[in-house]
């Protein structure tokens, strides 16, 4: 009896020790593998992709940036800008005032009075600014904030509704006259269709449209040339 007791407890000790080493070796494997996989997935892979993207698609990798004649960045083709002046087409309402360093939507629910009120106010303001009838129905993108807060696009209808205002403002303030047809053509030329004929929604890139407009407008600021102060003053 005593011998069996002794051997029994001994094998228990042995089993515990074996289990102990199993856990310890498992923990060591886990630590080593963690470090190795961080090197492969968290360092090697992004670096490899960085190199490949720079070689294959450098412009996109840098953010599809748009430059003026002096080489200064004036925006990104993909990121919407805030337009409030009457001579420009305006984008959608934004919950973050087009701050591309802090993207986001309103997160207001369907039964939130804040949303209902701001929608109604935006509808009235848009109709007034564009001299539309008080009961003119509006496409939803006119009054709703986007998910990103920096949506670069509006619907073709929202662009068309602004054409008259933009034309009048250019004539009044700049003395540059566009015909109504000219503006319609410009909007049509900058309307993106569905990709592959199926995917997505027809849309107009507001920044691109406004740049095209300015390039036809000899009095627009972009034609005033480069301001040499930036480089000149440093020397």
């Amino acid at each position: 009896m005593p011998r069996r007791d002794a051997s029994g407890s001994e094998s228990n000790v042995g089993r515990d020790a074996a289990l102990d080493t199993q856990w310890r070796s498992g923990a060591l494997v886990a630590l080593r593998l963690t470090v190795l996989l961080v090197l492969v997935c968290g360092v090697g892979y992004p670096a490899l992709l960085y190199g490949a993207a720079r070689l294959a698609f450098p412009s996109q990798a840098e953010g599809s940036l748009l430059h003026d004649q002096c080489g200064r960045v004036i925006g990104s083709l993909l990121i919407g800008q805030l337009f409030e002046a009457p001579q420009y087409f305006h984008g959608r309402p934004s919950a973050v005032a087009y701050n591309a360093g802090s993207s986001g939507g309103s997160n207001l629910g369907s039964t939130n009075p804040v949303l209902a009120d701001s929608l109604a106010a935006r509808a009235i303001a848009f109709r007034e600014a564009n001299a539309l009838a008080r009961d003119r129905s509006l496409p939803p993108d006119v009054v709703t904030a986007s998910g990103s807060g920096i949506d670069p696009h509006v619907s073709p209808e929202m662009a068309n509704l602004q054409a008259t205002r933009v034309r009048r403002a250019r004539t009044r303030d700049r003395g540059v006259s566009f015909s109504a047809e000219q503006l319609q053509e410009l909007i049509a030329a900058h309307t993106l269709t569905r990709q592959a004929g199926i995917l997505g929604q027809p849309r107009v890139n507001v920044l691109e449209l406004n740049l095209a407009l300015d390039s036809l407008d000899s009095n627009a600021p972009i034609h005033f040339g480069c301001v040499p102060a930036a480089t000149g003053a440093q020397r």
């Binding site: 309103s106 939803p140 993108d141 929604q201």
Partner: peptide, 26 residues
């Protein structure tokens, strides 16, 4: 509730329609 503000919910070739709050035009 948004329709009462004069929003056109009907999608067409020139506008997305529906509830566009928090959604992207593209």
């Amino acid at each position: 509730i948004h329709a009462t503000a004069g929003v056109n919910m009907l999608a067409s070739a020139t506008q997305p329609g529906g509830n566009m709050e928090g959604k992207e035009v593209r």
